[in-house]
Simulated assay, not measured.
Amino acid sequence: MMQTLMTMDGGRIQVTRLLVGLDMNVINADGETIATVALNDPEAWTLFRALGEELNA
């Protein structure tokens, strides 16, 4: 399963479910992959919780 999120600058973040976690690719507006991050499930949920707390602060 893959989910694509569009960024404000015309890029996108593609998140793909792995067997034991998530693979996230950050792609700029020119279509170039500028970052790739693979996280296991506990690390991914820790990241999402921290982002949520930061956004709600």
Rank of each mutant, 00 (worst) to 15 (best):
R49F: 10
A50I: 01
L19S: 11
M24A: 09
T36D: 09
A35Q: 05
R17P: 03
L55N: 07
G10V: 03
M2W: 00
G11A: 09
M8S: 12
I13L: 06
L18V: 01
D41W: 09
M2A: 13
E32W: 04
L18I: 01
A35K: 01
W45P: 14
T16F: 01
T4P: 03
V37S: 11
P42A: 08
L55E: 07
L39R: 02
R49I: 15
E53Y: 03
Q3N: 10
L22M: 14
R12E: 05
D9N: 12
L22C: 11
L22Q: 09
L5W: 10
D9I: 05
L55G: 11
Q14L: 04
M1S: 04
T7C: 01
E53I: 10
Q3C: 11
V26E: 13
V37I: 12
I13N: 04
G11T: 10
M8A: 08
T46R: 15
A29Y: 03
D9R: 04
A38S: 07
L22K: 11
E43C: 09
W45N: 15
M24I: 08
L55Q: 11
W45D: 15
N56F: 06
R17G: 06
R49G: 14
N28S: 01
D23M: 10
N28E: 06
G11D: 06
N56H: 06
L22T: 03
I34A: 12
D23C: 13
P42Y: 02
T46E: 15
M24S: 05
W45V: 15
A38Y: 00
Q3D: 13
N56A: 15
E32S: 12
A50M: 05
A50T: 13
A29N: 14
L51D: 05
G52E: 12
A44S: 03
Q14H: 02
L47T: 15
R17A: 09
D41F: 07
V37G: 01
R12A: 08
D9K: 11
M2V: 10
F48K: 06
E43W: 00
E43Q: 13
G52P: 03
D41A: 13
G52S: 09
T7H: 02
M6W: 08
M8G: 08
A44D: 05
E32H: 11
L47G: 07
A44V: 02
L22I: 07
W45S: 15
R17F: 06
R17L: 14
E53A: 14
G31L: 00
I27W: 04
A50N: 12
A44G: 04
N28M: 00
I34Q: 15
D41K: 07
Q14F: 00
D41T: 12
L18G: 04
T16K: 05
D41E: 13
A29E: 13
L39S: 03
A29D: 15
T4M: 02
A44M: 10
N56R: 08
V20Y: 13
D30S: 07
T46V: 14
I27K: 09
E53Q: 11
T33M: 12
T16H: 10
